[in-house]
């Protein structure tokens, strides 16, 4: 025994925990006081946040630079339209099935793509997404290039428009809570530490026993599953799907990268803060047409130059605050000082 101990929580984390619990309760009760339109935006936000948390896990921790997550968003969305819309599977099992399907699909895709390194891997992920788009557009059962509408009869069976909005919100909220929860527990554990080690130096990590291939694949599978479920619930809200929208790189990857980069790559809080900022900016700037995208690009560049760690990284460096405690505080035995 050396007498040193490790503390995993700070004093303020009790309060943060209480606050987090309260916010989840408020969010769950949102349909009681928010209208249809607000619920739709909240649902969309939850979906983006789940994607951002996963992309952050991929790129910010595991060092997996995927620009093709739209492949799984699209497959998940189409899976739901077929399973629930056409084949009549109940909604919740259909969404879970969509997630399982994209997870399964990501195994062969991942095993092939992980043979590529660096930029080649990134391009490979994009190519896979484009292939999925082309295959979908070729399929008559999937409505070819025009896409599918969700059968009105099935949609009505979920209740009135307001009830549907509430239902979809609760599903999206569950998905984002699940994503954040899994990401947090993973990153906090020693397996998460191994993931961070890989990001910093994969070769050195492997020399210490970190199974880099398996970790990368595990994160990739999780991210694919979440992307599938997010695609399912977001396109369910739209009641309409087409290949161009389902496999849209701008919507499902570029925006997500923007969110993670301005929020703070490699910090769980960054993806959450980034999503909030993204939706506020979009709300203000959406009326300016093409200027909107240019303004977003300019903001991303300024943040990257002035705060390379993202906005949360910037705040964390100055205040030491962590919403999700990952720290390992070392307490020396009595009578010994630490620097």
């Amino acid at each position: 025994m050396t007498g040193y101990t490790v503390r995993r929580y700070g004093q303020h984390h009790i309060w943060i925990g209480v606050l987090a619990l309260l916010s989840v309760l408020v969010l769950a009760a949102l349909p009681a006081f928010a209208g249809k339109a607000a619920l739709r935006i909240a649902t969309e936000m939850a979906g983006y946040m789940a994607l951002a948390v996963m992309w952050n896990l991929l790129a910010g921790y595991a060092g997996v630079m995927s620009i093709g997550q739209q492949a799984f968003v699209g497959v998940g969305a189409y899976a739901l339209f077929v399973l629930c819309g056409t084949m009549g599977l109940p909604l919740i099992p259909a969404i879970i099935a969509a997630g399982l399907l994209t997870t399964l699909l990501s195994i062969p895709v991942g095993l092939i793509l992980f043979r590529l390194n660096g930029a080649y891997f990134a391009i490979g992920t994009w190519v896979v997404a484009e292939i999925f788009l082309l295959l979908t557009a070729q399929s008559q059962t999937l409505g070819a290039g025009a896409g599918l509408s969700f059968p009105a009869g099935v949609a009505k069976s979920f209740g009135t428009a307001t009830e549907r909005a509430a239902l979809f919100w609760w599903i999206a909220l569950s998905i984002v809570l699940l994503s954040v929860g899994v990401a947090y527990l993973w990153l906090r554990s020693s397996r998460g530490l191994a993931l961070t080690a890989m990001r910093d130096d994969a070769e050195a990590a492997a020399g210490l026993g970190v199974d880099t291939k398996r970790n990368r694949l595990a994160v990739y599978l999780l991210a694919a599953g979440v992307a599938g479920m997010v695609g399912a619930v977001l396109f369910l809200g739209k009641l309409r799907i087409s290949p161009a929208a389902a496999y849209d790189i701008n919507e499902w990857t570029a925006s997500i990268i923007f969110i993670v980069v301005i929020g703070g790559l490699g910090r769980l809080e960054g993806a959450i803060l980034g999503t909030l900022i993204f939706f506020v900016l979009r709300g203000f700037l959406a009326d300016f047409g093409a200027w909107y995208l240019m303004a977003m690009g300019a903001i991303a560049i300024v943040v990257m130059l002035r705060m390379p760690q993202g906005i949360w990284g910037f705040l964390h460096e100055r205040t030491g605050i962590e919403l999700f405690p990952m720290r390992r505080d070392i307490c020396p035995p009595k009578g010994r000082a630490m620097s």
């Binding site: 080690a197 210490l208 026993g209």
Partner: peptide, 14 residues
């Protein structure tokens, strides 16, 4: 400490 912990847990296995 965390650097050393990566090795001590065998890359998260222990």
């Amino acid at each position: 400490f965390e650097n050393v912990l990566v090795g001590a847990t065998g890359g998260g296995r222990r």
